[in-house]
Design a protein around this nucleic acid. Structure first.
Length: 449
RNA sequence: GGCGCCGUGGCGGAGUGGCUACGCAGCGGCCUGCAAAGCCGUGUACACCAGUUCGAUUCUGGUCGGCGCCUCCA
């Protein structure tokens, strides 16, 4: 089994995966801010890191995946005010939607899904620590992080402090000692309907510190993999890294992984642009397996084109896999197909290249389809399991008695060479949702999808 | 303007210094009563210009174009 390598954003290089403890690999993947229902783009990190966890488990590692939900944020206040509901209620509703929508993807849940609101104590403690070490300061109830307190600020996102925009016009700019400093805590303001007490006054945590605190609480510092969308590299992850380093004297994570964006007609899909497709809508349209297959068709680090056409392609590809699975028999796969299986896992070992892995999977299928002998399904099952596509192995519902009866009538008509009647019955079956395939062993009824 | 990513056949999308990616669509064939599924075959693909090299889509430099981040963003 080849060693696993993963691309690390901080060093911009492929790194051999060498966890501190193979039995306890920690992955933290930044989840959404719940101020609205999530779109398909938000599902990419969920899928990528869920699959990565499955793959690492397959390779023998013990893995804990943490996927947070940000439920304290300016966006939530704004959206709640616009909707005329309490912000806590909005966040709760949207978090519930998020869990329900991502459930339908069919990859299970992360091992922990912390909410920021559950970790305010940890957050306050972490901020206090930063104040104690003089890496942060209080200004009129706000608390700001002193960016120059860490000498490697900008390392993750490859930014030169002295060349960065000076953040003019940004909220709180006049309170900052340095325009690049960012808020760890925002003092309560008139009209805000949630607040927490802290030694320096009531208010709420800033976004970046929430993740540092939750990750540290659940995985400890210097855990193995921190993931999220590439749009989070700066400032979110840069700030997380800086805070934790300043507070604990140790890096937050060893490897930083970032997934590429979904693109809709050549433009990043995002709520601010307004070119979004709801995750639940897409799931209504094609279901979880097709969506996962669609995501898997490109490398996780690259942008991926999103459109109905792409979805339809993935749907047909899924059919190809399903049809192949239907022909297999239970049990071990032939040695002759082994190289395809091995190539599949070798591709995943090389920076989790699911696109290349799928090519091997299709190669396996082609050879299996070509085989005269019955082919055992073990390899295919193993590969699909790792991608979370085991659902494609499941045969559809058994034909109804009525459908079977019609199929038999059609066989009789074919025996009698009454082609018109046979075709009529075939159309009737299709209308009922059954495709008839005449094989050497007689007709087969396959659910039309 | 700064930092970074990318330009591959009709579409999507991997990858490699010389050898079929793959999927979807198309075309021809086998099979079939006809289909469907499957199999076989099929496309002078690597933005452009130089350079390195026996040889570059793959390395280096430049040009043009697209995208992301620099403010909330998966």
């Amino acid at each position: 089994m080849p060693d696993v390598t993963l691309y690390d954003t901080r060093t911009r290089s492929l790194q051999p995966f060498q966890p501190r403890d193979p039995a306890r690999v920690g992955i933290y993947a930044c989840g959404p801010t719940v101020y609205a229902r999530v779109h398909v783009g938000n599902a990419r990190p969920f899928v990528v890191f869920s699959q990565l966890k499955r793959f690492l488990q397959h390779e023998g590692y013990g893995v804990t995946l943490v996927g947070n939900i940000t439920d304290i944020n300016d966006k939530i206040y704004t959206a709640a005010k616009a909707a005329g509901v309490p912000s806590g209620q909005l966040a709760e509703e949207m978090a519930a939607h998020y869990r329900a929508d991502t459930d339908r993807i069919g990859l299970g849940r992360p091992d922990a899904e912390p909410l920021a609101t559950e970790y305010v104590t940890h957050i306050i403690e972490l901020i206090q620590r930063l104040l104690d070490t003089d890496a942060a300061y209080v200004a009129e109830g706000d608390v700001y992080f002193r960016v120059r307190a860490v000498d490697n600020y900008g390392e993750l996102s490859r930014r030169d402090l002295d060349q960065m925009d000076q953040g003019e016009g940004v909220e709180g700019a006049d309170l900052k000692q340095d325009p690049l400093d960012f808020a760890l805590w925002k003092a309560w303001k008139e009209g805000e309907d949630t607040e927490w007490d802290a030694p320096w006054g009531k208010g709420r945590p800033g976004w970046h510190i929430e993740c540092s605190a939750m990750a540290e609480a659940l995985l400890g510092v210097e855990f193995d993999i921190h993931g999220g969308g590439v749009d989070l590299v700066f400032p979110h992850h840069e700030n997380e890294a800086a805070q934790t380093l300043a507070a604990r004297g140790a890096p937050l994570a060893r490897i930083w992984m970032h997934n590429g964006m979904l693109e809709l007609v050549g433009e990043k899909m995002s709520k601010s642009v307004g070119n979004i497709r709801g995750l639940h809508e897409v799931l209504d349209q094609v279901g979880g397996d097709v969506l996962v297959l669609y995501f898997s068709s490109g490398h996780y680090r690259q942008p991926l084109a999103f459109s109905d056409e792409r979805l339809e392609d993935a749907k047909r590809s899924a059919e190809r896999i399903r049809d192949a699975a239907r022909r297999l028999v239970e049990g071990a796969s032939p040695e002759a197909l082994r190289p395809h299986r091995d190539a599949f896992f070798a591709a995943l070992s090389n920076d989790f290249n699911t696109a290349e892995a799928l090519a091997s999977l299709y190669g396996w299928i082609r050879d299996a389809n070509r085989s005269e002998e019955p082919v055992g399904n073990a390899d295919l099952k193993e590969m699909l399991d790792v991608l979370g596509l085991e659902g494609l192995m499941v045969a559809g519902d058994a034909p109804t008695a009525e459908a079977t009866e019609l199929a038999q009538q059609r066989e009789q008509a074919r025996q009698d060479k009454d082609w018109a009647e046979a075709d009529r019955l075939r159309d009737q079956l299709l209308a009922m949702g059954w495709i008839v395939r005449d094989g050497p062993d007689g007709p087969e009824l396959v659910p039309a999808s």
